[in-house]
Measured scan of single mutants.
Amino acid sequence: ENVVSAPMPGKVLRVLVRVGDRVRVGQGLLVLEAMKMENEIPSPRDGVVKRILVKEGEIDDTGQPLIELG
Rank of each mutant, 00 (worst) to 15 (best):
Leu66His: 01
Pro44Asp: 06
Ile41Trp: 03
Pro44Gly: 04
Val23Met: 01
Glu56Gly: 09
Glu56Cys: 09
Glu68Val: 15
Pro42Val: 14
Leu29Ala: 01
Gly28His: 09
Pro9Ala: 13
Pro44Val: 04
Gly26Asp: 04
Arg14Thr: 06
Leu69His: 01
Gly57Arg: 04
Glu58Ala: 10
Pro42Ile: 13
Glu1Gly: 12
Met37Gln: 13
Met8Ser: 10
Met37Asp: 07
Arg45Tyr: 13
Val19Leu: 08
Lys55Arg: 12
Asp21Tyr: 03
Asp60Gln: 15
Gly47Ile: 03
Arg22Ala: 11
Arg18Leu: 07
Pro44Phe: 05
Leu66Gln: 02
Met35Ile: 07
Asn39Ile: 15
Met37Ser: 11
Pro7Cys: 09
Leu53Arg: 04
Asn39His: 15
Leu53His: 09
Ile67Met: 11
Val49Ser: 00
Val49Trp: 00
Arg18Asp: 11
Glu38Arg: 08
Met35His: 13
Leu32Met: 13
Gly70Ile: 14
Glu38His: 09
Val19Pro: 09
Arg51Ala: 12
Gln27Cys: 07
Asn2Pro: 07
Val3Trp: 14
Val23Tyr: 00
Asp21Thr: 06
Ala6Gln: 04
Gly63Arg: 08
Asp61Thr: 13
Asn2Gly: 11
Gly20Pro: 00
Val49Glu: 03
Glu58Cys: 10
Glu33Tyr: 14
Asp60Phe: 15
Pro42Met: 11
Val12His: 01
Arg14Val: 09
Ser5Asn: 11
Glu1Gln: 12
Val3Gln: 07
Gln27Trp: 02
Gly63Asp: 09
Ile41Phe: 04
Lys55Ala: 12
Arg24Trp: 10
Val15Pro: 03
Glu68Ala: 07
Asp21Leu: 06
Thr62Lys: 13
Lys50Ser: 10
Leu32Trp: 10
Ile59Gly: 05
Leu29Gln: 02
Ile52Ala: 02
Leu29Lys: 01
Lys50Asp: 05
Arg18Ala: 13
Val31Ala: 01
Val48Pro: 01
Val4Leu: 06
Arg18Gly: 10
Ile41His: 01
Ile59Met: 12
Gly20Tyr: 02
Leu69Phe: 09
Met8Gly: 10
Pro65Ser: 07
Val48Tyr: 13
Glu38Tyr: 08
Pro7Ile: 07
Leu29Cys: 06
